[in-house]
């Protein structure tokens, strides 16, 4: 191949790559744009064809309607607080388990734990719903924040443990061995030597678990009433009986997506590298 042909090929390749990336980014972002656009559209402009992309009078009416909904503040607060507490619990518990899995190939109950983790990840929650509802109601924990916190934490443990195990595995064993030679106890090695090194991994795991928790639908829709209601349940409520509310629905969705968008912008690099590490070394 001659030089100029090769340069031409390379330029063409680059142009094609950009074209593909731009197309993909458009496909990825359009529904988000359309949600936000619907949320600030007057109703009359929502159902017209050709669709109104920018030529409409933006309005905040839909947001006013949502914010005026009885209990909306509490729903938002519930989602925040449950996400925060449950994520903390999940990451803490998973980190401990991950350390055990990464460092001790043959501890007692290891085999059973692996089966348990995989099954918890693989079995659809719906299978467990009726017994869970019965157990939880009998214990008087229906619609209880603490119960939701524990439930969410438990369902996300397999994923968090999987990620954390690979982060722990990256810490060189030699560091721990030399600390042990210096006379440090097993627990203090974990606390003083390993923990600081896996903090970046923990923060990536935290973000992922928080996202999963924030978005969870089936658990709160079955196990929570009004007291502990979360945003996804509130949004799903628009499907029935409030049949014309696409605008407020889009506004509620936007409000639910907002924190996620913020997290993505701020922690994009961490998310990517976090999942990357977990993915490859898992």
């Amino acid at each position: 191949m001659t030089g100029p042909t090769r340069t031409l090929m390379r330029t063409l390749g680059t142009v094609a790559s950009y074209a593909a990336l731009i197309l993909a980014a458009f496909a990825a972002l359009f529904p988000l744009f359309w949600t936000i656009s619907t949320s600030v559209k007057p109703r009359a402009d929502t159902f017209v064809l050709p669709p109104r992309f920018f030529d409409f009078e933006p309005t905040l009416r839909n947001y006013e309607a949502i914010l005026a909904t009885r209990g909306f503040a509490q729903i938002y607060w519930n989602t925040l607080i449950i996400t925060a507490a449950s994520t903390a619990l999940c990451v803490a518990v998973s980190t401990l388990a991950a350390y055990a899995l990464a460092r001790s190939p043959g501890f007692r109950s290891r085999g059973a734990l692996e089966v348990g983790l995989i099954l918890t990840r693989a079995v659809p929650t719906i299978v467990l719903m009726v017994p869970l509802f019965q157990i939880i109601s009998r214990m008087g924990l229906y619609d209880n924040h603490l119960m939701l916190i524990v439930m969410y934490a438990a369902v996300n443990i397999p994923f968090a443990t999987w990620l954390m195990t690979s982060f722990v595995a990256q810490v060189p064993m030699a560091l721990e061995e030399s600390a042990a030679v210096d006379g440090a106890s097993r627990a203090s090695i974990l606390w003083f030597v390993v923990l600081p090194l896996i903090l970046p991994g923990m923060s990536a795991t935290t973000i992922f678990v928080a996202l999963l928790t924030w978005n969870e639908f089936l658990i709160p829709v079955m196990l929570a009433g009004n007291n502990a209601k979360t945003l996804p349940v509130f949004i799903a409520g628009f499907i029935s009986a409030r049949n014309l509310d696409w605008g407020p629905m889009a506004a509620a969705s936007t409000l639910a997506i907002l924190p996620i968008a913020l997290v993505t912008v701020i922690a994009q690099r961490k998310l990517v590298s976090g999942l990357s590490t977990g993915a490859v070394k898992g």
């Binding site: 229906y142 619609d143 799903a236 009986a241």
Partner: peptide
Amino acid sequence: VNVTETPYGEAHQKLLLSVQLGQGQ
């Protein structure tokens, strides 16, 4: 008066379960 609103899709099922457990919710 405390209000609990539940989406139509789950409302009746949850009420049935709740009354079945007899907790007077």
